[in-house]
């Protein structure tokens, strides 16, 4: 099977959809003349023509609304937001409109749209290094997909474009270049299905998106030290498929939740709550959560590295859980 990058996997899915369905079109900032901020749709204008992929003005609500209106009227827009930081300017469009249309008009309208947006950081300071996964995952009416492997990136993108409802597709600048096996042929990965990536008997690590490569590293290191960790990739954070997580947790009785977000009131908080409520009888030790330290993101290299999670943070959390320690979340 070919080994390709996460970015190339997305590109394959997008190209396939663009080729097969003329209703699919891409809009976003700097997707044409700049050749797309992270290169995912590089060269698409040559391939598909200027009407199928269009540079948008820096008006996030504006082109989100353009996409939603077009989706309501039967097209299949893919809206690329340069990063999740800027996408929050379109929250009204996404939350008050895309997520609500179908319901509040009694099912008369649908909104088949995909919003692509990357999280990420890299000495970009406070406004350019955030994660808002929980904002979208909070909202009935949205589906929120966060692939952590190239295989899932392609299959979930195909599923997102084919889905008849609004899908928030969260990528990550830190993993566009990771590699993995990706079939050349067309396939979809179903939205709303978690995936057990590794079975284990000592502890269940739950994560998604950018944390998956870190978790995979952590699991290997832990194995070399004799700790047998299971790893579940949520892949989708709304709808949330807890069954594979609970199934593993019933065997391990211990859990670490690894999400790249501020820990309090995050997606990880929900997973912890579900483990406590649905898995209470199986709980042998306090759950630990791994995330950003709760500070605005600093610029200096050492400070930034200090407050973001990585494979080591996951390893440390696993050891703390196995030692039965209690986590104190620090907010100041």
């Amino acid at each position: 099977m070919p080994v390709i990058t996460y970015s190339e996997a997305l590109r394959q899915a997008l190209r396939e959809a663009m080729t097969n369905d003329p209703r699919v079109f891409i809009i976003g900032e700097d997707v044409v003349h700049y050749d797309s901020a992270y290169g995912v749709t590089k060269g698409f204008e040559k391939e598909f023509g200027p009407e199928r992929i269009k540079d948008m003005p820096i008006a996030e609500a504006g082109y989100a609304g353009l996409g939603i209106g077009a989706a309501m009227n039967g097209l299949r827009p893919i809206v690329e937001m340069m990063t999740t930081n800027f996408a929050i300017l379109a929250l009204d469009m996404i939350i008050n409109h895309a997520a609500k249309l179908h319901y509040m008009f009694g099912g008369q309208f649908t909104c088949p749209i995909v919003f692509r947006m990357p999280n990420g950081y890299g000495q970009l300071s406070a406004t350019h290094s955030q994660a808002f996964d929980n904002y979208y995952a909070y909202m009935p009416g949205l589906k929120v997909v966060v692939p952590g492997t190239p295989y899932d990136a392609k299959g979930l993108m195909k599923a997102a474009i084919e889905d008849p409802d609004p899908v928030i597709f969260i990528e990550h600048t830190g993993i566009y270049n990771i590699k993995g096996e990706v079939p050349e042929e067309s396939y979809t990965v179903p939205i709303g299905k978690s995936n057990l990536l590794r079975d284990g008997k000592d502890v269940t690590i739950v994560g998604y998106g950018r944390m998956i490569p870190y978790c995979q590293q952590a699991v290997e290191t832990l194995a070399s030290e004799g700790i047998d960790a299971a790893l579940v990739d949520l892949r989708t954070i709304r709808p949330l498929d807890m069954e594979p997580v609970l199934e593993s947790f019933r065997k391990t009785n211990r859990a670490v939740i690894a999400t790249e977000e501020w820990t309090s009131v995050g997606v990880g908080s929900e997973i912890a709550a579900r483990l406590y409520t649905e898995g209470f009888d199986h709980l042998d030790a306090p759950i630990w959560r791994v995330g950003f330290d709760e500070v605005p993101m600093p610029y200096a290299k050492n400070l930034e590295a200090h407050v973001v999670p990585n494979a080591d943070s996951v390893i440390q959390a696993v050891k703390n859980v196995l030692a039965g320690k209690t986590q104190k979340i620090r907010q100041q």
Binding site: F25, I68, N73
Partner: peptide
Amino acid sequence: GAHLLLAMGIAYSIKYK
């Protein structure tokens, strides 16, 4: 003010079609 953008998007889709 928000629906002006949806209206603009519907108009865009007419032209696209």
